[in-house]
Amino acid sequence: MSYKFLPLLFLSLLAYKPTTKAVKTPAITNDSVKVIEQNKLIAENKTTNFEIVSKAFFYSLDKGTYSLPSLESFTKAFEGYEQLKKLGRVKNEILTIIDFSLSSTQERMWVIDMTTQRVLLQSLVSHGMNSGTEFAKSFSNENNSFKSSLGFYLTGETYKGKHGLSLKLDGQEYGINHKARERAVVVHGAEYVNKNLIKTQGYIGRSQGCPAVPMNMTKKLIDLIKNQSVLYIHHPSRIYMNKGSLTS
C-alpha cells in the first residue's frame, strides 16, 4: 500500500506494544506448544495492526461535501479490497460501498478513490423488491429471487440495455453472489430511485436485485467505477458473516 497517511501510521505502530497477557504459556511445554502459542500471538498482532491501518485510512479520508460510511462497513470493505488487490484482480483503484443496513431513504452508496483517499460520490441506491421495503432484510444468490446479494463484486464492461447505460458485475464470493452475471445483476439508472418517491411513499422504488441509482447519476457513476474496481454491498447479516470469504 502507498497511502498518504502511512508516515503517521508508522509512528503509531512504533508506539504500539503488543500485549501477550492473553497468551498463557503452560508451565511445561514442548516445541509444538511453543509454535502454536507463537502463531496465535502473530495472528493477534496481525489483526490488531490491520485494524490500525484500516482506521487510519478511514479517518484520513477527504469527504468533501459528503458524509462518510460507517466505520464498520468501511473496515469490511477495506479488508476485501486489499485481498482482491493482492490477488491482482483490481485494475481500477476505486472502492464502492453500499450499506444495506441503512434505510433506502438515505444516500447509502459511497464511491472512494483509494489512491487519493477522497470520497468522489454519494448516492441513493435501490435494493431488490423481495429483500424488503424501506430496509433490505433478506438476500439471495438465486435466479428469479428478485433479492439483492451481499458481498464483493468486481465491475465489468458497460452496455446499453432497457435501462440505458448499464454496468455488469462479477460476484467474487461463491454461494453468496457468484450468479450475478447469470441473474443480470447490474448497475443501472432507474426513474424509481428518486427523492420524490420518499415524500409520497416513504421509501424509494426497488429493483429485481440490481443496485439501481438515480438516472442523473448513472453516467458519472459508471464512468468512475467501470473496468474492474471493487464494489462491496454491506449488511450485518449473520449468514453473510459466516459464509463470506474475503472478510474475517
Rank of each mutant, 00 (worst) to 15 (best):
V125R: 00
F58I: 03
S104H: 04
I28D: 14
E157N: 14
Q106G: 03
L71K: 14
L41F: 13
S104K: 12
V111D: 06
L71F: 09
F58W: 01
N30V: 05
N45S: 09
D31S: 09
G88W: 11
R89K: 15
E157M: 00
I112G: 06
N39T: 13
Y66D: 08
F58Y: 15
K63C: 02
L68Q: 11
L41G: 07
A136Q: 09
S138F: 12
L84A: 03
K85Y: 10
Y81R: 08
L95C: 12
L121R: 14
V125G: 08
F146Q: 12
E134Y: 06
S138Q: 14
R108H: 02
E107D: 15
S149E: 11
Y153L: 08
K46V: 11
S73G: 10
L71T: 08
E51Q: 12
K91N: 13
L71C: 04
G80F: 06
V33I: 15
G80L: 02
F100A: 02
F57P: 03
Q83N: 14
A56P: 07
I112M: 07
T65E: 15
G80D: 06
L87S: 07
Q38F: 13
M109G: 06
R89F: 07
F57K: 06
S149H: 01
E93N: 13
D99Y: 03
M129T: 13
F139H: 01
E134V: 12
L84C: 00
M114V: 05
A43Y: 03
P69V: 01
T105C: 05
S73R: 10
D99A: 04
L87D: 07
I52D: 04
T115R: 12
K86N: 09
S73C: 01
S54M: 04
G88A: 08
F139P: 01
F57V: 02
H127E: 10
G151C: 01
S103Q: 02
K85C: 07
V53P: 05
F152E: 00
G64K: 14
S101Y: 09
S104W: 10
L120T: 04
S73L: 10
I97C: 05
V90F: 00
A77Y: 09
P26I: 10
F152W: 09
R118D: 07
E37R: 14
K63N: 13
A43M: 02
I28T: 14
T75S: 14
K91R: 13
L87C: 07
F50W: 14
S145V: 07
S140G: 07
D62A: 10
A77P: 06
V33P: 08
S101C: 03
Q83Y: 05
L102T: 08
K63H: 11
V111Y: 03
K76R: 14
